[in-house]
Design a protein around this nucleic acid. Sequence first.
RNA 1: GAUCCUGUAGCUCAGCUGGAUAGAGCGUCCGCCUCCUAAGCGGAAGGUCAGCAGUUCGAAUCUGCUCAGGAUCACCA
Length: 595
Amino acid sequence: MLNELKNSWKDAIEKELRSYLSTDDIPALTIGLPPRSDMGDAAFPMFPYSKLAHKAPAVIASDIAARLTDHPEGEMLPSGPYLNVRFDIPALADKVMDRVESEGSLYGTNQSGKGRKIMIEFSCPNTNKPLHLGHMRNDSLGQSVSELLKATGAEVMKVNLINNRGVHISKSMLAYKLFGNGETPESTGEKGDHFVGRYYVRFAAWEKEVAGAKEKDPSIVSDPSFVDPDEAAQAMLRDWEAGDPEVRALWEKMNKWTLDGLFESYRNMGISFDKLYYESDTYRLGRGEVMRGLDLGVFKKEEDGSVQVDLAPIGLDKKVLLRRDGTTLYITQDIGTAVRRHEDWPFDSLIYVVASEQNYHFKVLFYVLGLLGYEWAEELHHLAYGMVNLPEGKMKSREGTVVDADDLLSELSVLARNEIIEKGRENEVGDVDETARKIALGALNYYLLQVQPMRDMIFNPKESISFSGNTGPYLQYTAARISSILRKFEVSKEEFSGVESDGRLLVNEDEKTLVKALADFPEAVRKAADTFDPSVICTALYDAAKTFSHYYHDNQILKADTKELSLTRIRLVSALLTMMKNGFALIGIPYLESM
RNA sequence: GAUCCUGUAGCUCAGCUGGAUAGAGCGUCCGCCUCCUAAGCGGAAGGUCAGCAGUUCGAAUCUGCUCAGGAUCACCA
């Protein structure tokens, strides 16, 4: 709504400029923001017209202001070389509040993606260990972008490709077989993914033991009982592929343990999927596509029998698509999986949420799918995100510096719980543990999403995630305060019978800023969705919350000077709450009525 | 070596489709609970927007080069 206003002013001023300069050929007018809000709501710099008019920009600004009589509601405030405009915000207020009230939980959404089918792939865990902080960034982003796309009216299919096979899976299986003594997650009371993860670590320890023993006495290699861990894991993978019943049974059992654990984590994080793909079903896919590419002449069979594609047209080298022995590779599988997915659900667009480390892979994948003649290859996107690093550098599982997702969430919950108790709010918040969990989740999601996806981010376990300042809990707290005001209003509602609200009463700077924030929210959603960047929503909500806090501190809402003003302010903050709730849903922040 | 990404306050990050005095949080220091939740509010200190050049009336923003950090360039996934 704010944009419409800006553009109508822009059009009016441009029209006047054309007449003023006696030409239709003028540089486009740019819209800016004055440095301070008391200087107006929009700024139109006049510099570009100086040469044409042979006049100083400041002269043009005041000339235009004097000449422009037929203009939208508002006031012109020429300020040096800028023609500033103050919008008639109070006139806008009622329109905005009406719209928020009528649209409710849909406020902020649009229809720009109506009719589009968008598939989004994210998470894609291995079934040999629990989730860590890096996965959480992926999950938060994927979940949030999915919601953003839904907010454009698109039909969204969230898919997860479970990496449940491969030598890394065999390693945890082998370690369990050798050292497990039949224990189970039930018997040890562990969460399944942590249980299996422990055996993956156990494998690495075993590897190290054997390497140490070998170094001490190289002759043990010839001992009939000697087992090389890596070879044994490879052998197990071969047995798995051959369908060995015992290996398959162990695989089924351990995968289930892990997946039960992973999905418990997803639930705790508010993450869900519409469809699961399993690598065990897809890893053979793609060979047919490669063969088809050979027939089409877009791929080439090398002398050694491998099939390769020439990437020179996109400035890269050659890439093998099928091994010498005819088996598939990672990229082959991804080709086949993409084709299978489009058959399953004919998407208009497919978004892969995968770390930026794989930029090369996706560049090649998309190019190859294009070569195969799939027109939808044009609509494939790699939503690349940066790494989550520790102050000391990368997280390393070998050094035990990986931040476990479940641990982090529960540690944050404990901290949140302590805060609730410290503030003596156990009775107000209802379920203390549940509230603490939601605060922890809000803090974590906001922390992960406030940074632009592309950027690497640094996570300091000791101080990174706090509950005050520019954080998720600050937003939750702001919403809870508004919620509290509205509850108090409800009980004293009869005092307001016969009183009418009037947006024209909203004249102080904070009120106008809030009206503008409300009016601009749909634009923020649009921008966030278009750029796949939830941080836009984080910023919009934080700015609004900040303004509210200042406003709330200085102004009485329930007990304003007049009933009319109180009622109008109630309407304003109620609309703000609706906007915040809608924004929360987009970035995975649980709404709390009380905290 | 090549390609891609990043470099803004002590720290973590906004701002980048060029516009007025570059913003926030954390941390430091100082204030504010008789008042709708102090997880809050206000104030102070803190900047060569990595550097150099270019384009422009105007550059943190665009271009080029340099420097620094990261990632990738497997018949691994």
